[in-house]
Amino acid sequence: MAKQYKVVHCTVNGKEIEQVVDVRESLTDMLRNDLHLTSVKKGCEVGECGACTVIINGEGFNSCIYLAVWAEGKEIWTLEGLTGPGGELSDIQQAFVDEGAIQCGFCTPGFIMTSWEIVNSGKEYTDDELRKALSGHLCRCTGYENIFRAVKKTMLRHLGKFEEAELVNSQGITEYPDPMPFK
């Protein structure tokens, strides 16, 4: 049976693209195979592990179960789009490095994309909300605490709470000195 193809027009990492895709092709396949954006990882391919997460029109999606043709007219961001022109890391990427939130690195791009959405939301998440917001991602190496700490510290810095970010301890808990200065 003949396959059906369509042309997709969208913006990927700030660049307008036009791409012919098989109508059954996933967005992961289009980004990896056609656009060579290999930060988008193929993990479970059932939408459970979060390794393929990309930002579409400001929200995180599992690109492995998102049809490429649905991307028509959409604005898509992958990890490659976060680095500066000279390859400089964004603050959330640097926080992952600083906090040791990386081991094998397979889950990292997906985690960073969701974290990017969180830290740019302008909202101060509670620890519980932050853990829930990150729960669409599976990491078999780090045990999550370092990732949680990296995201929490970056979120606080984005909110201008630089001193508070430094009070986040190794368990990700903000340790206020007594008396609490940040209320």
């Binding site: 939408g47 459970e48 599992n62 969701t114 829930k132 917001a133 669409g136």
Partner: peptide, 8 residues
Amino acid sequence: ASRTKRNM
């Protein structure tokens, strides 16, 4: 549990 999946 996954927010990215809940978006879909």
